[in-house]
Nucleic acid binder design. Structure first.
Lengths: 347, 347
DNA sequence: CTGTTAGCGCGTTCAC
DNA sequence: GTGAACGCGCTAACAG
């Protein structure tokens, strides 16, 4: 047989004639088998399989309004924070026979909006992770389709929040306990709920422990941003830094190493999200993350909404803790900057 | 306003009456603006936007047979090999206004098959990455829909292959050049095309360089598998190992460290796929990977097929190279096991 | 240039 | 229990 020869798609009508019944009967055989002769159902299903008939998802959706699809939109698929979340969401949806569209907003609100428009007419619900849209935009979209947020806190919209505040607080206590007096927080994206949350928690905790706090902006959470921001960190008198996420922290480690500054001997560093495991050297002290649970819970919430089992203002909070590894220590006696001491420092 | 009050979805008909034209005209305003009065188009589009009208993707698909969707199925979303590929594929599709379904087969052929059945009636094309299906199954699916393979070589099916063989060959030369005589290859999944390719390339190159090769099986490419397989590696007399992928290699590094074996002083290690960057310590020597390019190319190929611009037996090969970092060195003089020798060797 | 008509494949009233 | 007719929202022939 010639390649490229595509098999004609079988329809309900084909099955109907082959079985000597009407289309309605075939339809019922698949959707309401109990309202049909058990013998008929078996016969029809058999013939259908023989013919290689697969129900047309699209036609069914048009007719019923149920697509059995949902959309998952994240800001950056390649950011290691997301894959576990995506995976969990995907598999949770799968368990209920839902298909999931994946969208990558690339940190751009307009792109995110475009994607939603493209998806909205073929999904039953939307799952937005770390959305960069405004509250108003989100509310608008939520009026069109059931909508669940992950790591974004908009009153009235069902949401799953990873409470990194807890972990950040512990990080501050940890640093204060080691003797640090002055730290810097490296901001992530300004429109990020997670970033605001972390920064605020950090400020509050720092005040309690009488730590001085400087702020520095990385904007985009990435290795490169972290590396680029090192000079600003060093300009402050801080002896430790908490970074928006692990990627940024990893970049900072590299930047520090390039300047011959040893972590944690001369400078302490804490990341966030625990996406790197113990892969860095020294292994990174960081705040735990439960993104897979968040993904699973988000989808579960959405499915509940779709089946009407849900109402009101759900707000699911997953808390976190500090994972102490090897990038934090007591501050050096000397200033971190100009110390060309003769000790062999690892890069 | 009560929450949960969903806004009624606007249809073409609504726009039509509001604009005082027929549905067809509205339709054309969106699909063939040039066949309409430029004034009319503008007016209609305005009204549409005002009403919050969004074309119904599903209805359009049913009518035209064009869904504007494609399915991307991978074996494990959370494996760091895939996210860049997924991201690139997603954005490439996005550029042509295609939506992409993401499927996670979880390394299970039956699950992969189920996913395809679920997707097939609502996509125009399928993109299978590292498929675990049999050749026959793949050919069957390809008869129903345009289908592109990534890292799977089935004659007659368009495919994009990351030729890690090149890089593996260089790895062997590199190890041989350092003086290694006996190495082990740590297998990945047995149904993986990439694994067979790497193992074969390794064997051939090893023979040329007169290296002895032992095989060890990790089956699942993961950190844990790598760690678990360390005892077997040490049972051989090998002085170096090439692992199926970086994850496995990272696990091996941990396992070695736990046994007090220093890499690369007492044992050399090469990974594959370069997904960890320089994040490990010591930073991992590995074979480069171009998964993002593969993703982009795969989608591009698929889109070409859909627009009829393509025929025949496309086979796109992306080659790779060795990235030498710090986990390879000359073999120790003594046996790798019990040697507290004092030599400070850095690469 | 624009309106009319007829489906796309399926679920769902209604009758029988 | 089962069949016939209508409509989901849109595009693709045809007119005009």
């Amino acid at each position: 047989m010639q390649h490229g020869a595509r098999k004609k798609t079988q329809t309900m009508a084909d099955v109907a004639v082959a079985a000597g019944v009407s289309k309605s009967t075939v339809s019922r055989a698949f959707t309401q088998p109990d309202r049909l002769g058990p013998e008929t159902v078996k016969r029809i299903k058999n013939i259908a399989r023989q013919l290689g008939y697969v129900p047309n998802h699209t036609a069914r959706a048009l007719s019923t309004g149920r697509h059995g699809n949902l959309a998952l939109i994240v800001s950056d698929v390649a950011n290691p924070f997301f894959p576990p979340l995506i995976r969990a969401a995907q598999m949770e949806a799968d368990g209920s026979d839902f298909c999931v569209f994946l969208g990558n907003s690339d940190e751009d609100p307009r792109q995110e909006d475009r994607l939603i428009d493209r998806f909205v007419s073929q999904v039953e619900g939307l799952l937005l992770v770390a959305s960069r849209l405004t509250d108003e935009q989100i509310v608008q979209h939520a009026r069109r389709r059931p909508l669940v947020l992950i790591n974004r806190d908009v009153p009235g919209i069902p949401r799953v929040l990873i409470e990194s505040a807890t972990g950040v607080r512990h990080a501050i206590e940890h640093l204060a306990g080691l003797g640090h007096k002055h730290i810097v927080y490296v901001n992530g994206p300004s429109s990020s709920w997670a970033n605001r949350q972390r920064r605020n928690a950090l400020k509050v905790a720092a005040r309690q422990h009488k730590l001085e706090v400087d702020l520095v902006n990385a904007h985009v959470p990435s290795y490169e941003s972290g590396r680029a921001v090192v000079p600003q960190i060093l300009d402050s008198k801080a002896t430790a830094a908490v970074a928006f996420d692990d990627l940024t922290a990893q970049g900072i480690m590299t930047g520090m190493a390039e300047r011959g500054i040893s972590i944690p001997r001369q400078f302490s560093l804490v990341g966030c999200d625990d996406v790197l495991g113990a892969a860095t050297y020294p292994s990174l002290t960081t705040v735990s993350n439960r993104s897979d649970e968040a993904g699973r819970a988000g989808v579960s919430l959405l499915l509940d909404m779709l089946s009407g089992r849900m109402a009101g203002d759900t707000r699911l909070v997953l808390d976190t803790h500090l994972v102490v590894r090897q990038t934090t220590a007591a501050p050096a006696q000397e200033k971190p900057k100009g110390s060309p001491s003769g000790q062999p420092e690892r890069v």
